[in-house]
Design a protein around this nucleic acid. Structure first.
Lengths: 125, 125
DNA sequence: TCGGGAACTAGCCGGATGGGGAGGCGGATG
DNA sequence: CATCCGCCTCCCCATCCGGCTAGTTCCCGA
């Protein structure tokens, strides 16, 4: 990793808003010294959205402590049985909490729930 | 939501490495259309560190185009039936692709698969 | 020309999932 | 005190999931 003196800085564009992303891509494309990363390429820095509209941020859905426990396990692909075992509760109770989660997260299933939670920053995948 | 055409994009510099931050500040300072945010100022986008050490995703799992289609739908919580319908294929074929996905992504179930894919940057949640 | 991989279809089956109802318990809040 | 809420337990049941084996086309490369 011995860096030479004038390396081109690779910047990953991680902006959800296509308009904004496009504008930034244009602007950065004309700058000597930086280069946009292609998908998958490891970049030194990333441009991430910090816009109120686009940022996922603080809208914490309020989950009960138990629901957070269950959600975390769900995000790891745990089945209801596995959740029950690891939380020391019955499968039925695990299902109950999963149900509440689906409800609060507007999800139709556990996969959707995890995706929604990740998108909203409720969990950190 | 009617935004006027505000060509100036405010960028927050959130880079720990002072050398890198400095270089970026210089480069961006000379670009018309972007402006660096001052501390505390709300910015549209932020430049964050994405060092190779911190980046998760060099290992692109190679998925077939169809598998990517299926994965994208899975990430939205689509059931096999929904996947089949939206892709114009049979439920069996949907299950087939899901199965391959679970295999390639080392996942035990679709929820796990989506989580893994998101973690590795295979999908963009 | 002969694989071989991708994509697609099919049936079967055990188990998991999610929704419904019906409760019990402790703590907070009115 | 009465009530609500979070949390827990149990039941039933239709559907879905994932793994299995097995077959079909198509197309690319050896």
């Amino acid at each position: 990793m011995s860096e030479e003196i004038s390396p081109i800085i690779v910047v990953a564009l991680e902006i959800a808003d296509p308009v904004l992303a496009d504008r930034l891509a244009l602007l950065l494309g004309g700058v000597a010294g930086v280069r946009l990363a292609r998908p998958g390429e490891s970049a030194a820095v990333a441009l991430v959205s910090r816009d109120a509209q686009a940022v996922v941020e603080p809208a914490d859905i309020d989950l009960t402590p138990r629901e957070r426990d269950v959600l975390a396990l769900m995000a790891e692909g745990a089945s209801n049985k596995a959740i029950a075992r690891q939380l020391g509760i019955s499968v039925h109770t695990a299902k109950f909490h999963v149900g509440s989660l689906l409800d609060k997260l507007d999800a139709t299933g556990r996969t959707d729930a995890v995706a929604h939670a990740a998108r909203r920053g409720v969990i950190n995948l």
